[in-house]
Simulated assay, not measured.
Amino acid sequence: MSSSRKRVAILISGRGSNMRSLIEAAEDADFPAEIALVLSNRPDAGGLAVAQEAGIATAVVDHKAYPKDRAGFDAAVDEVLREAEIELVCLAGFMRLLTPGFVEGWRDRMINIHPSLLPLFPGLHTHERAIEAGMRLAGCTVHYVRPEMDSGPIIAQASVPIAFDDTPETLAKRVLTVEHEIYPLALALVAAGLARVENERLVIDPSLPLDTTDMLIAPSFGG
């Protein structure tokens, strides 16, 4: 395993669907990041067992042990991350609002995936809201994390059409499929230094190829 690979922690609260896609991508030795830790705020999160089966270290910081003390919870999480020598953090269904101090401590080193085409529909119930609004497209966004919920420079987005007979459940399934595609790509861009933030806008290294529709395509990590 190359020492140049960035050490990544994935923060989860549940089954870790997007976590799985990141773990699978990082199984390639040429992927520029290694999943060094999976941390959950819930001891019963299903994703912990998945990570353990993959041979990845896990940790739990139970938010219930910090009632009305968000800063104390975040400090405990931060301590675990730093002890594990984590360089990048991926939020994957982590259902906790992080304090501004924690977010700023990991500024431009923490990314999140959200099931809408931000800045549309931040927060919860994104699929219901997109359908109710009469949208013809839905999708997902990977972005750098900022103190304001579901904000920050956008790294990658993917869209899916909304069918006239879609329900929030059927739409969610299709959006999840593209989430699994773009989250590993976004992590790879950040870990490889091909994406960075300047003046709160994403800057892409000119060596990254673009296709004819100007959509980002994954670089070949295998050479």
Rank of each mutant, 00 (worst) to 15 (best):
V145I: 12
D78K: 10
L176R: 15
F94T: 02
M149A: 13
F121R: 07
S151F: 09
F102S: 05
P115L: 01
M135R: 11
A71M: 11
L81C: 07
M110V: 09
F94I: 06
D166A: 11
I86R: 06
D165C: 11
E79W: 00
G105E: 06
E104Y: 12
R82G: 04
L97C: 09
V77K: 03
V145G: 03
E87D: 11
P168D: 05
E83M: 09
L97W: 13
V175K: 02
E179G: 04
E85N: 15
T170A: 07
A192S: 15
A188Y: 01
A188M: 05
V190P: 04
L98D: 00
R129D: 05
I155Q: 01
M95T: 10
H143T: 06
L124C: 08
S151K: 11
F94P: 01
G72N: 12
P119L: 03
D108F: 11
M149N: 10
Y144H: 14
F102I: 04
A156E: 13
V103C: 11
E104S: 14
G134M: 09
V89S: 01
S151L: 03
L176N: 13
L117A: 10
A158Y: 07
A130E: 02
G93Q: 00
R136G: 08
V77D: 07
E128I: 08
E181C: 05
M95V: 05
M95H: 07
F73E: 02
E169A: 14
V178E: 09
S116N: 04
V103Q: 05
V190E: 06
P184Y: 00
T126P: 00
I131D: 00
L118K: 06
P147Q: 04
T177A: 15
R82L: 11
L171M: 00
P184M: 05
S159I: 13
P153N: 12
I182M: 11
L194P: 04
P119C: 02
V190K: 08
G93K: 00
L117P: 02
M149D: 01
T141H: 06
V142A: 02
E104Q: 13
F164I: 11
L137A: 13
G152H: 02
A191S: 09
R96K: 15
A156M: 14
